[in-house]
Design a protein around this nucleic acid. Structure first.
Ligand code: FES
Ligand code: FES
Lengths: 152, 152
DNA sequence: CTGAATACGGACCGATCCAGTCGGATATAA
DNA sequence: TTATATCCGACTGGATCGGTCCGTATTCAG
């Protein structure tokens, strides 16, 4: 398991698509949806949420659509996922309503929180630009490296 | 989200508990369940699964129970999670039955797979022993380090 | 031998969550 | 005015998850 939501996946795809078309003033939800063959209405809601969190700028009306609010380099995958799927926690405790009663007895939460932090760090180190660049897996250029240190 | 199952959480807790009591020949599911205040029957099934995957040895009958099949140092958190929650994938595509139809168009799968690999690496680098050691968060000894390199 | 304790395994249920849809309101350019 | 958009809430069907129940097999103690 440990998988992220399809909506988040769609969101990442859409942002990547927008990053690949910087010249166009705005792309509608339908445009992106058709490009990838994903449900238009669903993607629309995803993009709306991204707009509300400030990652996108929207423009209604004809020839309207969405555009990146910042440079693709300045938007991390973490932000996108967080905006759509909400706070990211590997621990099953912090679930919806209940803050998990066995928090005192559960001694595993703390080390797992470190893992969680690490994952978040990895996601933060990946920008939309990174996703767009690796469209062509030709080079396999090992030039850009992300380094993550996990300290238990 | 991106949270692991409560069962996996229970499994980790139980294994940690077993690692902390190496002298006892075997601990029953009920013992561990009572120690943490988690449903006994549920934990039982978790432990059964861990037994079937070879992480635990079981012994029925009176004074029976479970014991670690290997040294706590040789059991990684990844194995436990994988045994309980199944294969670990961050991509929402590889879900149950369908292998996701938009695999060709989705250009995001590949970079995300790297992230997935990184997470798996982190989890693999954590042993049950590590969890048990950090019972007392006194030292905050930065002696044991896990190093993970993410190569996009 | 008998019984208690334990591991096993399947079936089952209620709650929650998720993907996707529908319908309507609003904004904007042609 | 009309077509094209974003917006927003409500709804549904299905899957998953946490948890329970019950029946069986195994082992040990007395
Ligand atoms: S299960 Fe809730 S604190 Fe670990
Ligand atoms: S959503 Fe299925 S391949 Fe990315």
């Amino acid at each position: 398991m440990l998988k992220l939501t399809k909506k988040a996946d769609y969101g990442l795809m859409a942002l990547k698509y927008l990053a690949e078309h910087p010249e166009t003033p705005a792309l509608s939800a339908k445009d992106v949806a058709d490009a990838y063959g994903i449900p238009a209405q669903l993607l629309a809601k995803v993009l709306q949420r991204l707009t509300k969190t400030g990652l996108l700028r929207s423009h209604a009306g004809m020839n309207g659509g969405y555009e990146l609010a910042r440079d693709a380099r300045q938007i991390s995958a973490f932000e996108v996922i967080h905006a759509i799927d909400g706070p990211l926690f590997i621990t099953s405790c912090t679930k919806g309503t209940k803050p998990c009663e066995l928090t005192p007895s559960c001694t595993i939460k703390e080390p797992l929180a470190r893992v969680n932090e690490t994952i978040a760090g990895v996601l933060k180190s990946i920008s939309i630009q990174d996703l767009a660049e690796h469209e062509h897996p030709t080079g396999r250029s090992r030039e850009t490296h992300g380094l993550v240190v996990l300290t238990l």
